[in-house]
Simulated assay, not measured.
Amino acid sequence: MAVVARAGALAAERPVGRPRDRVRTRAAGAERRRHRSGWLFVLPATALFAVFFVYPLLASFWQSLYATDGGVTAFVGLAQYRRMLVDPLVAQSLLNAGLLLLVQVPLMVSLALGLAYLLNLSWLRLRTGFRLMAFLPAVTSLVAYSVVFRVLLATDGGAVNQLLGVVGLGPVDWLNDPLWARVALVAAITWRWTGYNMVILLAGLQAVPKELYEAARLDGASGWQVFSRVVVPQLRPVLVFVTVTSTIGALQLFDEVVILTGGGPSNATLTPVLYLYRVGFEQFDFGYASAIAWVVVLLTMVLSVLQLRLAREK
């Protein structure tokens, strides 16, 4: 009886949970159930991402560590990457990609920024029509516009050479001369993607407060000073985005090169992705092709991080 009485006394002394604590416990349980439900909704997309992105990425790296000789596949470690150091076509393709980055990307971004600034002016009439015309190349098929440019730039009978003949200039061998083939490639890519980048920059311009323009004009700023001191700094995040995506596109260039020049003449327009395709699907050297792909991925990542870092520091 004494033991029972003592147990009853201890139970009476034990504090009863407050209603607020019970509510908090129930809320925590409901939050955990919501998290589990959220993971169930995300699971299909996560599974697709793992199967079609993560697994191929890891498998390609694993494949780059192997080489096939005479039908026998053997582990070679980093030999495929060392092979690239002495491969002249890898160096040539990277040089061509570097030229595109130095010439085509700044040219395209500058044109896109200028067009966006002009189309954002309030006094310009028919702005909607001009925006539509500038954006139309972006919705054109890559293959279709490349074929059109190939026909226009044909040495014999091409429309561009016919126009040059009207003004007394001789025909230009656009697609068979190394210099002019690069010029033709830059012109085609610029025509295709300038309107796309212009729309992105135009959206950024429309987000700039009108009070900044008015304050600059009241301080006596000229049109160029308003553009360089007000517009460009306000557009810095958008410009960084456009530059990074254009850099990635230049390093991954494939369709236009295949149709316009085929990587020629004399590999003057050979790109890393085109060379990767030839090694993998024409020579069936998938280990070496995987190594080239990883170098392109790492180079893209390094350039993107550098651009973001420089923009952040400025």
Results as ranks from 00 to 15, higher is better:
Phe149His: 04
Arg34Gly: 11
Gln206Ser: 10
Arg278Tyr: 00
Leu201Ser: 02
Ala311Arg: 00
Phe75His: 10
Gly195Leu: 08
Val147Tyr: 09
Pro171Asn: 10
Pro19Ala: 05
Ser64Lys: 01
Val305Gly: 09
Arg33Ile: 10
Thr243Trp: 12
Ile259Val: 15
Val231Tyr: 02
Phe49Gln: 05
Phe52Tyr: 08
Glu256Pro: 01
Gln206Ile: 00
Gln225Phe: 11
Pro265Ser: 07
Asp219Cys: 12
Val160Gln: 06
Pro19Ile: 02
Ser222Met: 12
Val305Gln: 07
Met133Gln: 05
Phe284Ile: 14
Ser37Gln: 14
Ala207Glu: 02
Gly98Ile: 14
Phe61Gly: 14
Leu94Ile: 08
Arg312Gln: 09
Leu40Trp: 13
Ala30Asn: 09
Ala27Gly: 07
Gly220Pro: 11
Pro137Trp: 04
Leu48Ile: 15
Arg131Pro: 02
Ala268Glu: 05
Met1Val: 02
Gln63Ser: 14
Val3Ser: 11
Leu107Gly: 12
Ala291His: 07
Arg125Gln: 14
Trp174Leu: 05
Val4Met: 03
Leu58Gly: 14
Leu164Phe: 06
Val76Leu: 04
Leu179Pro: 03
Gly129Arg: 09
Leu274Pro: 01
Leu299Ile: 15
Val279Tyr: 00
Gly249Asn: 08
Asn120Asp: 14
Lys210Gly: 15
Met301Arg: 05
Asp285Thr: 01
Pro19Ser: 01
Leu169Ile: 07
Pro171Tyr: 05
Asp285Gln: 12
Gly38Met: 12
Thr300Ala: 14
Phe61Trp: 13
Gly170Cys: 02
Val183Pro: 11
Pro272Trp: 10
Ala207Gly: 02
Leu142Phe: 12
Pro209Ile: 03
Ala159Trp: 09
Val226Asp: 05
Arg278Trp: 00
Val109Trp: 00
Val16Trp: 07
Leu107Val: 11
Tyr275Lys: 03
Arg192Ser: 08
Gln104Ala: 13
Val226Cys: 13
Val167Thr: 08
Ala268Gly: 04
Leu142Asp: 10
Leu202Asp: 02
Gly17Arg: 15
Met108Ala: 03
Thr25Gly: 04
Met133Cys: 10
Arg36Tyr: 14
Tyr145His: 06
Leu251Tyr: 11
Asp21Ala: 15
Ala144His: 03
Thr300Gly: 14
Trp180His: 09
Leu48Trp: 12
Arg312Thr: 03
Leu43Asn: 10
Val183Cys: 09
Ala47Cys: 09
Val244Gln: 06
Leu308Asp: 07
Leu58Asn: 05
Gly71His: 13
Ile189Thr: 15
Ser93Ala: 12
Leu101Lys: 10
Tyr213Asn: 09
Asp255Gln: 06
Ser246Gln: 06
Val279Glu: 01
Ala291Tyr: 03
Met301Val: 15
Val23Ser: 01
Ala154Gln: 06
Ala215Phe: 08
Gly262Cys: 05
Val160Leu: 06
Val305Asn: 06
Arg182Cys: 08
Asp69Cys: 04
Tyr55Asp: 07
Leu260Tyr: 04
Val23Gln: 00
Tyr81Ser: 11
Arg34Asn: 10
Ala116Asp: 00
Ala67Phe: 09
Val72Thr: 14
Ala289Trp: 02
Leu100Met: 15
Thr190Asn: 08
Gln307Trp: 04
Ala91Val: 12
Gln307His: 03
Leu85Phe: 13
